[in-house]
């Protein structure tokens, strides 16, 4: 059985568990909206929301929400020792990593689909060059899912993981956050490909490194 088949098996299991409990995705969506509302109130100036804060609010809210989701990413595997079962599969730990990264990407994409329009409405943003922002979000969420699945997996058995996860993840996610904010700000200013090219390529390169490095590190660390 190939790694891809085992990954698909574990991913379907994760989706089935998420669909049955439902709580995680619902909480993430509500948390992200609350976060956006708090930011919107925080950036009110003379009764008007400041549009220039849209990129920061969007990306920081996504990072906070993803952190919350990552803390629950391996919870079903930790219960009753199921973690050992998944790690000892014939494909080793790699399918477990990929299934978790896919699940996290799915969660964060759903949150993003709800959050993005909400932030635009709360902060009164114009819908300009949406496709560049969408591309940046896709690359940013992919990178966050890969590094997030790695960090959450490595810390899954550690008592202080709630505290340690942001400390480990945020420095790793910083380049993606910076580039994502830049691309979103440029897109809102009506900029085109030549101006945002370097930032998008940086995100792409970062994701390419994550695709190779994260599963390898995960497999090395958990075995």
């Amino acid at each position: 059985m190939s790694t891809a088949q085992l990954t698909w098996t574990l991913f379907r299991k994760d989706v089935a568990i998420a669909a049955r409990s439902r709580e995680v995705l619902g909480f993430l969506v509500i948390f992200s909206l609350l976060c956006a509302v708090v930011f919107a109130f925080g950036f009110l100036r003379e009764g008007r929301a400041a549009q220039e804060h849209v990129p920061g609010v969007l990306w920081v809210t996504l990072l906070f929400t993803n952190t919350l989701g990552l803390l629950r990413l391996y919870s079903a595997d930790e219960e009753a020792g199921a973690w050992t079962l998944a790690l000892r599969s014939i494909g080793g730990p790699t399918p477990l990593f990929w299934s978790k990264a896919m699940l996290q990407l799915g969660f964060s994409t759903i949150v993003c689909v709800v959050l993005w329009p909400a932030v635009a409405i709360f902060l009164d943003a114009r819908a300009i060059a949406v496709h560049w922002t969408a591309l940046a979000l896709l690359l940013g969420l992919l990178g966050q899912a890969l590094f997030g699945a790695l960090c959450a997996g490595l810390l899954a058995q550690i008592r202080l993981r709630e505290v340690l996860l942001p400390l480990v993840l945020y420095p790793l996610a910083a380049p993606l956050l910076l580039a994502g904010v830049k691309v979103t700000a440029l897109a809102l200013d009506g900029a085109q490909w030549p101006e945002m090219q370097s930032w998008l390529l940086l995100m792409l390169a970062f994701d390419a490194i994550a695709v190779v490095l994260c599963p390898w590190l995960f497999a090395r660390a958990v075995t």
Binding site: K13, A16, I17, S21, A76, D77, E79, A80, G81, A82
Partner: peptide, 9 residues
């Protein structure tokens, strides 16, 4: 020691 089962399955 633990049954290693996914409790929601």
């Amino acid at each position: 020691h633990e049954p290693a089962l996914y409790l929601d399955l």
